[in-house]
Design a protein around this nucleic acid. Structure first.
Lengths: 292, 292
DNA sequence: CGGCGCCTTGATCGGAATCAATGCTTGTGG
DNA sequence: CCACAAGCATTGATTCCGATCAAGGCGCCG
C-alpha cells in the first residue's frame, strides 16, 4: 500500500479578504440570544428552528422509510414530556447502570470517555432527534458517559417503552436500527479524522458534519447559521487537540472568511471550500436515503 | 471540567535489563514458521492454537449465554467451508455493495478507511470468530473496506443465511447483537486511544487489547505469545502514527523488556506493566460476562 | 469590585513527522 | 548461481505541528 506524500498543506486560500470580524469579543448584542452560561435563574426557552409540528425524532426516522399515522403519533408522543435541563447535566455515567434512555428533543449532548489523568475524548454528539444509545438497554454497564452541552430539553424514556415500541412497530424498530448504524458510521469517520487529518481538516470536517446533521432535523436558521454551544475546550476534546491550538486554527478559518463563530452560533460562509479542505463528502450520513 | 496536567511521561522503567534481542534481523530460524509474505506457491496451513473442536465463532458467542446442541451445531457449520485466502485479499470494498458477509475462521483481517491523499486509518481488527459486520446486510453500501492481514481462512456466508439463523435462533441472534455491541465499544476505546494517548500508550493499549481478545478465542500459544502478522506500517495506520515512530517506540518497549515482537509473533513479557502504561482495563471487552 | 469562564496571544518546548540512507531477507529472472 | 528488485526494519538528521507555559483581557455574574 503506497502512501503518497501528502502535499495539501496549503489550503485553498482567500487571503485577500479579511472582512470578517474575528468574533469581536467587545461589542455584544450582535444578533442573537445571549447564551446564559452557567447557573442563571431564567431558563431560555429551548430554541430549535423546528419546534412546532414534527418532532426531530420523527423527522429523522422518517428518512429511513415511510411511517403510518399511528407510528407518527407514537413517535411524537415520545417527545411530549421532554424536560428542560441545564448544560453540563449528565445523562449517563460510565459504569453506572441505567434503566432509561434519553431522547434529545432540543439542544445538544455529547458522549465522552475520560482517561485517568483527566484527558477527555468526546466520542460523538447527540442532536435533536437522537436517542442516547438504545444499546444501553442491553449492555447494562455503559462504557462511556453522556452529558449535555448547553441547555437542552430531554425526554427520559423507560427502556421498557422502547422495547415495546420495537416489538409492536417493525418499521420503527428498523428505523431505530438504521439510525444506530449511522451512528457507528459517524464514529468510524471520526476515528479517521482524529487519526489522520490535521488540525485544519479536523475542524472543517467537524463543522461540515454538524451542519449536515443539523440540517436534516431542521436545526439550521434561515441565514444558514446554527446553534453550536461548544466552547474551545470542548472542541479540543472533540478533535484531539488543545484549546490553544483550536483557537489559532479557528482564527485562520475566520480570517479566510470561511466561518463565523460567535456567541455559540456558527455560520459557515463558504461551505464548498470548507468541504474541500476537509475532504468532506457527506455521503456517509445518507444511509437513510441509500437504504430507503 | 478540569484537565490535570498529565505528568506520566516517564513510564515505569526497568532499564537495567536489556537482554531481549531487538528482533535480531540477522539470524533466522529463531523459532517459528517463516511467514511467507507475498505471492508464494505453497500455502501454510492456517495456524491457530485452537483449530480442533469448537470453532472460534462458537467460543466467542458462547460467552454471551448458553446455547443448545442445535445452535452449537449450526454455528460450527458456518466455519465448515472456510477457504484459505492470501494476505492483502480484500473482502469488502468501501462503496461496493456486497451480498455476503465473511467469517474469519483463522488469521487476521482489518477494517479501514482511506483519505484521498493516501493516508489510511485502520478502524479495527477482525480475529478468528469475528464476522465482518452483519450490518452490511442492511446498509448495502459499506462505508469502509475490509482486507486480510496475513494469510487466513475465511468463510463466505450469504446474508440470507444469517438472516435465517437470526430468525430461527433467538439466542444466536442475541449473541450476534451483543457481539456487534462489543465491536462498537472497542471502536470507542480506539477513538479515545488515537485521540488522547501518546505513542507509547497507544502501542501498549493495542497490544493489550489484542492479547485479551485473542485469548478469548484461544489464539494464544502456550508460551504466551501469539501471531500478530502486522508490520510497522500497519501498526502506524492503526494508531495514527508514522512507521518510523512506531519503530522507535517498539524499540523502547523491547529495551524495557516489555515485549518481544519478531517474525510476526508477539510475546508480551510483562503484561502487568504494559497495562499500567496503557491505562488498560479490559473490562470493556467483557460485555459478554456482564450481560451473560 | 472581585471572581470566574472563556477567548486570545506570545514564547518556548517537544513528540512525532519528514527526509534520507543503509542493510537484511526473500523472491524473480536471466 | 548471481544480479536485481521489492518489502521491511532500522537509524540519524532535521523540521514542524501542535502542546505547554504563562499572562492578559473581556463580559458576566454575585
Amino acid at each position: 500500500m503506497l502512501r503518497f506524500t501528502a502535499p495539501l498543506r496549503n489550503y485553498p486560500s482567500h487571503s485577500e479578504v479579511m472582512d470578517i470580524a474575528p468574533c469581536a469579543p467587545k461589542r455584544r448584542s450582535e444578533t442573537n440570544p445571549v447564551y446564559l452560561d452557567y447557573p442563571p435563574r431564567s431558563f431560555p426557552s429551548p430554541v430549535t428552528a423546528s419546534a412546532p409540528r414534527a418532532s426531530a425524532l420523527l423527522t429523522k426516522l422518517s428518512a429511513f422509510g415511510q411511517l403510518d399515522v399511528n407510528e407518527i403519533e407514537v413517535l411524537n408522543l415520545l417527545s411530549r414530556n421532554a424536560k428542560p435541563m441545564r448544560s453540563e447535566q449528565m445523562l449517563i455515567h460510565e459504569g453506572s447502570p441505567t434503566s432509561s434512555i434519553y431522547l434529545i428533543v432540543s439542544g445538544l449532548a455529547c458522549r465522552y470517555k475520560m482517561l485517568c489523568d483527566g484527558r477527555r475524548q468526546i466520542l460523538g454528539y447527540l442532536l435533536p432527534g437522537d436517542l442516547c444509545d438504545i444499546h444501553f438497554a442491553i449492555a447494562n454497564k455503559p462504557d462511556h458517559s453522556v452529558a449535555l452541552i448547553g441547555d437542552s430539553s430531554v425526554a427520559q424514556i423507560p427502556i421498557s417503552r422502547i422495547t415495546e415500541l420495537m416489538l409492536r412497530y417493525p418499521r420503527i424498530s428498523r428505523a431505530l436500527t438504521l439510525a444506530s448504524l449511522v451512528d457507528s458510521v459517524i464514529l468510524r469517520e471520526w476515528l479517521l479524522s482524529v487519526g489522520q487529518r490535521d488540525a485544519m481538516q479536523k475542524l472543517c470536517h467537524f463543522f461540515c458534519e454538524m451542519a449536515v446533521r443539523l440540517e436534516a432535523v431542521g436545526g439550521i436558521n434561515d441565514d444558514g447559521s446554527f446553534e453550536l454551544p461548544v466552547n474551545q475546550v470542548t472542541l479540543a476534546d472533540t478533535l484531539g487537540l488543545t484549546p490553544v491550538h483550536i483557537n489559532r486554527t479557528l482564527q485562520r478559518l475566520r480570517n479566510e472568511g470561511l466561518i463565523r463563530l460567535c456567541q455559540r452560533r456558527l455560520a459557515i460562509l463558504d461551505r464548498e471550500r470548507l468541504a474541500t479542505i476537509a475532504g468532506f463528502d457527506g455521503a456517509y450520513l445518507q444511509l437513510g436515503l441509500a437504504a430507503g
